[in-house]
């Protein structure tokens, strides 16, 4: 018995991904939970993405952004548009390189109806190229401040959860409307200063410190190609990751936690360094340092956002620290 009065809005951000769109939109169409709409945000694609999308899914709303606004801003525009419809209770985010199985939405919504403080949910996201390997079951900020994808590259076993986790991977996830409206940034759910990388960790940290809950629903399966859509420049992704890292920590956590995490960062940075230099990727280690330095200059912006978060920070620090051990 599905509660089909809870409408779900799928939001897809597209940037020159016309060859990936067909499968992605088809997997949405085939969902057993039928009460959903789709919003496609086009980040200024120069190929035929928009035309392909409107042909494959005529009743999807397409928003043309004109230029590449990034993952964060693109999704925020889509969320704002979706929430204009009062019936929409959940937002489902899907990467263009991700596909969802038939019962994905049904399992997640059935699980979510029990949770009045549930913020984000994800299923088991498997590797598209090898369905027995996990891409992610959850994400978390480890105790050394590094964002980690949970169970990455581990064997898939069918009995992994459901678990309450630190946070979810935004490749294929569901976010509840009540959480978006309760957190201090409104429909600007993702932090636009971050442009790309770590915005989902930021949302996860924000939900956890506000004492909202993120869940893994393991029977709901999705397939993800990995960073196929943006993996063309790995140095860029490292740079952006480390640039956004300090801001994320300073914005969300209490000063005691900031201190604890920062005290772990130097040793883990040096370890990452050694590891990359031993692999021969010297330019990669330079991007890490560049990211850290530039990240310092962005700190004032994050301090302002931190002030907004002050009232909402409610979680017990010891509990938070225990969650940051393995993510659940």
């Amino acid at each position: 018995m599905m509660i089909s009065k809870d409408k779900v809005a799928f939001i897809i951000v597209c940037w020159n991904n016309e060859n990936l769109l067909a499968d992605c939109l088809k997997s949405i169409d085939e969902q057993s939970y039928t009460n959903h709409t789709t919003i496609l945000v086009d980040n200024g694609s120069s190929d035929n993405s928009v035309a392909t999308a409107s042909k494959l899914m005529p009743d999807a709303k397409i928003i043309k952004a004109g230029k590449n606004l990034g993952f964060a801003k693109g999704n925020n525009i889509g969320i704002a548009k979706a929430l204009e419809d009062k019936d929409v209770k959940y937002i489902a985010l899907l990467n263009t390189d991700a596909r969802v199985e038939k019962n994905w939405l049904k399992y997640i919504i059935e699980f979510a109806k029990h949770k009045s403080r549930g913020a984000c949910y994800q299923g088991t996201t498997l590797d598209y190229y090898n369905e027995s390997i996990i891409d992610s079951t959850h994400i978390y900020l480890a105790r050394n401040g590094q964002a980690t994808q949970g169970n990455w590259r581990k064997q898939y076993t069918s009995e992994l959860g459901p678990k309450k986790v630190f946070g979810v991977n935004a490749a294929a996830c569901v976010i509840s409307r009540v959480f978006i409206e309760a957190q201090p940034f409104g429909t600007k759910l993702f932090d636009e200063t971050m442009f790309m990388y770590l915005e989902d960790v930021d949302v996860a940290a924000r939900a956890t410190v506000m004492r909202w809950d993120n869940y893994l629903v393991p029977h709901a399966r999705a397939l993800h190609m990995g960073s196929a859509s943006s993996g063309k420049n790995p140095n860029f992704s490292l740079y952006m990751t480390f640039r956004n890292n300090s801001g994320l920590i300073v914005k969300n956590f209490s000063w005691r936690m900031v201190l604890k995490i920062f005290s772990n960062i130097p040793s883990s940075d040096i370890d990452t360094f050694k590891h990359l230099r031993s692999l021969g990727k010297k330019s990669a280690s330079w991007s890490i340092v560049k990211g850290r330095i530039v990240g310092v200059f962005y700190l004032p912006i994050y301090m302002l956002k931190r002030h907004k978060m002050n009232k909402y920070r409610k979680v017990d620090n010891k509990y938070l620290w225990s969650l940051m051990d393995k993510g659940f």
């Binding site: 130097p266 940075d269 230099r277 010297k282 330079w286």
Partner: peptide, 29 residues
């Protein structure tokens, strides 16, 4: 760490300075 390039030296210096600042900050706390 074996330093065999100007880039390596610069990187090391920056990391050391970063570490030093953080350590001073933390010690003060």
């Amino acid at each position: 760490m074996v330093l065999n390039s100007m880039m390596g030296l610069l990187t090391l210096l920056i990391v050391l300075i970063e570490t030093l600042l953080l350590v001073l900050f933390i010690l003060a706390m």
